[in-house]
Amino acid sequence: MSADIIPLMRRQDDAPPTLDPMLQITAAGMNSVNTVILDRMQSEIPLIPRLAGHLISGGGKRLRPMLTLAGAELVGYQGNRHHKLAAAVEFIHTATLLHDDVVDGSELRRGKAAANIIFGNPATVLVGDFLFSRAFELMTEDGSLRVLKILSSASAIIAEGEVAQLSAQRKIETSEERYLDIIGAKTAALFAAASRISAVVAECDDSQERALDDYGRNLGVAFQLVDDAIDYDSDTAEMGKDRGDDFREGKMTLPVILAFARGTAEEREFWKAAISGHRSSDEDLDHAIRLIAKHDCVEATRERARHFAQRAADALSIFPDSKARSAMVEAAQFAVARGY
């Protein structure tokens, strides 16, 4: 097996990285996963499939279940247990999005009106609970206590991460280390679990299981870092959500943490007022974006994302070269290069 460092660079044809190779190697499996998702989101209560379908069919990348399928391809798994488990991963993710939108009061999700705006907060929370329950049904049907432990632990960690983010909201003193802990929990934990369970169902050795966990965890951190950079570097049409949502909600993401650390005394006073909620107008957002640009905070955030993406790629070095490994490396490249 190769133990070389895998360079994180552009493809040989110098084209920007895409998810296309990942989509190609997981296409057949995703058809099965989507069938499970469609089946298990049904209910005799019409509102449940309507609300769940609003988000599930809303154009998401489905990256997390794809990680489960790609990991299975990487380790040569020949069964089909991972299809239901990948659907469980997507249900967990969708449930957290529904709950997040209620907590944040979001108006847009993936370029459409958020479910809470259309259906109301109570229904959105309850359908999120329904999807969590469906996820756990799928886990128990699989029958593996190890898989159940990995995914249930990830679910608990995600919830802890969301509470930690809420606790850090409007606190200008939040450190970069604390921020990384938060996104490691609220985002990277599910990426890690989604990747790891493919090694478990394939009965791989501990080193391969750890490698897939490391890949997913580092990819998840890189993905969230770029998400947070995009909030100050893209328009609403690209992002699929309102520009400046993080700013108005007083979230201490890395671009803000860096801008505050690098700013003048006057700039720091602006940030204190903005994060505390006293400077939240469109003009204030424009000023915040200018300060972040002045101190190269978006590029610095993306540079940190590249570091974690490289770690994700390096984690796969214990596996032989293959289409699956190349696709997973390119997915890490895409996570950093994307603008949406």
Score class of each variant (00 low, 15 high):
231 D>M: 10
214 D>N: 15
86 A>R: 04
69 L>I: 13
71 G>A: 14
213 D>K: 15
211 A>Q: 05
67 L>W: 13
31 N>K: 14
70 A>Q: 04
9 M>G: 09
37 I>W: 09
268 R>Q: 15
16 P>W: 12
205 D>P: 00
109 R>K: 03
43 S>T: 06
22 M>K: 01
73 E>Y: 04
295 H>D: 03
292 I>K: 02
174 T>A: 06
138 L>P: 09
5 I>V: 13
94 T>Q: 07
330 E>S: 07
235 D>Q: 11
91 F>N: 06
326 S>D: 15
318 I>H: 11
136 F>R: 13
62 R>E: 04
331 A>K: 08
132 F>S: 01
143 G>L: 02
259 A>R: 08
287 H>W: 01
207 S>K: 08
260 F>L: 09
146 R>K: 15
53 G>K: 13
33 V>F: 09
148 L>F: 15
256 V>Y: 11
2 S>V: 04
266 E>C: 01
34 N>V: 01
76 G>W: 10
238 E>R: 14
146 R>I: 04
177 E>L: 12
249 E>R: 14
203 E>G: 11
290 R>M: 03
105 G>P: 06
214 D>A: 15
80 N>E: 13
2 S>T: 11
226 V>F: 04
309 A>Y: 08
221 V>W: 09
109 R>V: 02
143 G>E: 04
263 G>H: 08
